[in-house]
Amino acid sequence: MENKLIPLNCLPIGKKARVKELKSDGPIRRRMLDLGLITDTVIEALQRSPSGEPVAYAIRGAVIALRSEESSKILVEAL
């Protein structure tokens, strides 16, 4: 049973997901990898900023805020 892949910015707050694919490339891709966003990393959407963006995510024990420009290029499988 394979779950449908959704872009990370569509993941509801409070939900966890598994990273499946990075669609960005170049320096942004490398930055995302450095944050630990490799395949099968579990990530949780924690909190929206007051104006809705960016969103803070729990990634490998750290809290990182991403804008939708970046998070829409991370495909995840909701858990």
């Binding site: 960016p54 750290a62 809290v63 990182i64 805020a65 804008r67 970046e70």
Partner: peptide
């Protein structure tokens, strides 16, 4: 255009 942005919220 705005460039990529990642911001750590430390403990």
């Amino acid at each position: 255009l705005p460039s990529s942005f990642t911001l750590e919220l430390p403990p």
